Amino acid sequence: MAALPRRIIKETQRLMVEPVPGIVACADEANARHFHVTVKGPKESPYENGVFNLELFLPEEYPMSAPKVRFVTKIYHPNIDKLGRICLDILKDKWSPALQIRTVLLSIQALLSAPNPDDPLENDVAEAWKTDEASAIETAKSWTCKYATGKNIKN
């Protein structure tokens, strides 16, 4: 494997020395472009008390192209589909080389605090969020408990 660009080394070191509160990102031992990420569900969100596993991969073109990120843990969210793909502007058309891994992780954490059903990736979840937000939030809490806490509950 080619030597890692200095920028990736510096960003990885910064994540270790100055971790983002509620987020742990560790580079894979076999591939330093692949990160194992855990994100704690933000307080006062339907995802509170959940711990979500994500994968983050830096393509060869990074930082000229956005990292590839997906949820490994199942989540009920209008902007995250069943495969864990994330609908987030900075991962697509709003990416800028000025952004960093930590910016992406903070944006994902913010997306958990403020789901956006008007820009959905999962249309049925977005529709539920728009028509009966209280019920959608209960479903999100249930899924968080079932898939992201290790506690299995009955609906």
Rank of each mutant, 00 (worst) to 15 (best):
K68F: 13
R70T: 15
T73I: 11
T73P: 13
K74D: 06
K74F: 08
K74G: 10
I75N: 03
Y76E: 10
H77C: 12
H77M: 10
P78G: 11
I80E: 06
D81C: 09
K82S: 15
K82Y: 04
K82T: 15
L83R: 12
G84H: 14
G84F: 14
R85M: 07
R85Q: 08
R85D: 12
R85P: 07
C87S: 11
C87W: 01
I90A: 00
L91F: 13
D93V: 02
K94S: 10
W95I: 05
W95A: 01
W95Q: 08
A98E: 03
Q100D: 08
Q100T: 14
Q100A: 03
I101M: 04
R102I: 02
R102N: 13
T103H: 15
T103M: 04
V104F: 10
L106I: 09
S107L: 08
S107E: 01
L111T: 01
L111S: 03
L111D: 05
L112M: 11
S113G: 10
S113V: 03
S113L: 12
S113D: 11
A114L: 06
A114C: 07
A114E: 15
P115Q: 10
N116L: 11
P117M: 11
P117N: 02
P117V: 12
D118H: 13
D118A: 05
P120F: 09
P120Q: 03
P120T: 13
N123H: 14
D124C: 01
V125W: 01
V125G: 03
A126H: 12
A126T: 12
E127F: 09
A128E: 15
K130R: 14
K130D: 04
D132R: 10
E133T: 13
E133P: 00
S135T: 14
A136P: 02
A136W: 04
I137F: 01
E138F: 06
E138V: 08
E138L: 12
T139I: 13
T139L: 13
T139D: 06
A140E: 00
A140K: 00
A140T: 00
A140H: 00
A140C: 02
K141L: 06
S142H: 15
W143I: 11
W143R: 11
W143T: 04
C145K: 15
K146R: 09
K146N: 12
Y147P: 05
A148G: 06
T149C: 10
T149L: 09
T149H: 15
T149K: 09
